[in-house]
């Protein structure tokens, strides 16, 4: 989790050092300015004008782009889907990841090998992950259909990626597949920082390992878990490539999340002004969705100290 940065660095240096130190931060500040501040200003400019990829800022259109964006039910729907997907995948990845972390904690043999294997989905390029799961999910020759038919759970192949509900769940599944290892490794690291003597004290007092988990482990882990969840949530809103390759937003609009929809508006309809307005609205939604959790994180950290 992001560390609290309020802490005073120990030791003081001469002023001349401070001057050089300030200079060395300049490239970072400039870089992030270009990457984060400039785009917002530029987007504002685009959003209030008629713009395309060839020629931005053709003429001032006021709030027309924003009105168009909010009047577009597909865009509003995509916002809802982005939020839903980010939260669902965060929740699922947290539960699965923490479970895996607890399991990893029990590992005595081949810990490094197990950790490497768990790391693989996280490192897999999302485009590749999408292809892998496409191969598993396709109606003809997809392993899952064959498996479910062998179990007689379905009688004929299902087009998982061609049916709205299952397509959405598939995107969720692949995202969870990629990101629960991240949660698992982070939670495992957090578990390792918990004082072992506290567990031993609990072992002397309590028989049930569930009681220990519920009343000792989980509360002690809580601030770290909130931190990990916030991070996962932020990452969840960055999702793009998985949808691009796995479902291309379909079927219909079933998996069209905002970043994908905006991309399409920009690149297929060339309406950069509209795309810019949508981007700003999306950014506001992301902010509103994540900020309460960062606050919760700070509170949770204070609670333990």
């Amino acid at each position: 989790m992001p560390q609290t940065l309020k802490r005073r660095a120990p030791g003081r240096f001469r002023p001349s050092g401070r001057v050089i130190a300030r200079l060395t931060t300049t490239p970072l500040i400039v870089g992030l300015g270009v990457f984060a501040i400039y785009p917002f200003i530029y987007l504002l400019g685009l959003a209030f004008t008629e713009s395309n990829l060839i020629e931005p800022f053709q003429k001032w259109v006021g709030t027309e782009n924003f009105q168009d964006a909010l009047g577009d039910p597909r865009f509003v729907g995509s916002l809802g889907r982005s939020v839903l997907l980010a939260f669902l995948s965060t929740a699922t990845a947290m539960v699965l990841g923490v479970a895996v972390a607890l399991l990893l904690d029990k590992a005595v043999k081949a810990r490094d090998l197990i950790r490497t294997l768990i790391l693989l989905p996280l490192l897999t390029p999302p485009v590749t992950a999408a292809i892998m799961w496409q191969l598993l999910l396709m109606p003809q020759g997809g392993w899952l259909n064959g498996f479910l038919m062998d179990l007689s759970l379905i009688s004929e192949p299902v087009s998982f990626l061609g049916t709205p509900t299952t397509a959405f769940l598939s995107v969720l599944l692949v995202d969870v597949w990629q990101w629960s290892p991240f949660v698992a490794l982070m939670s495992f690291a957090a578990l390792q920082t918990l004082p072992s003597e506290v567990y031993e004290a609990a072992k002397l007092e309590v028989r049930s390992s569930w009681t220990v988990f519920r009343w000792i482990t989980l509360p002690m882990l809580f601030p770290a878990l909130i931190g990990i969840a916030v991070l996962k949530l932020v990452i969840g809103f960055k999702l793009f490539d998985l949808v691009f390759v796995l479902t291309a937003g379909g079927p219909g609009q079933a998996t069209t999340i905002s970043s994908f929809y905006i991309y399409r508006i920009g690149i297929q309809q060339f309406d950069i002004g509209l795309a810019a307005a949508m981007t700003l609205l999306f950014a506001i939604v992301v902010g509103l969705a994540t900020v309460p959790f960062t606050v919760a994180h700070d509170k949770a950290e204070d609670r333990l100290s």
């Binding site: 003597e197 506290v198 004290a201 002397l204 007092e205 309590v206 049930s208 509360p219 809580f222």
Partner: peptide, 26 residues
């Protein structure tokens, strides 16, 4: 009962809960 070098108190519980946890859990 054991008293540890690092005290091993439950950091998220009050003094009261620390002392009573074992009894309550049982």
């Amino acid at each position: 009962s054991m008293v540890f070098q690092s005290y091993a108190l439950y950091p998220h519980m009050t003094v009261e809960d620390n002392m009573g946890f074992g009894l309550k859990a049982n």
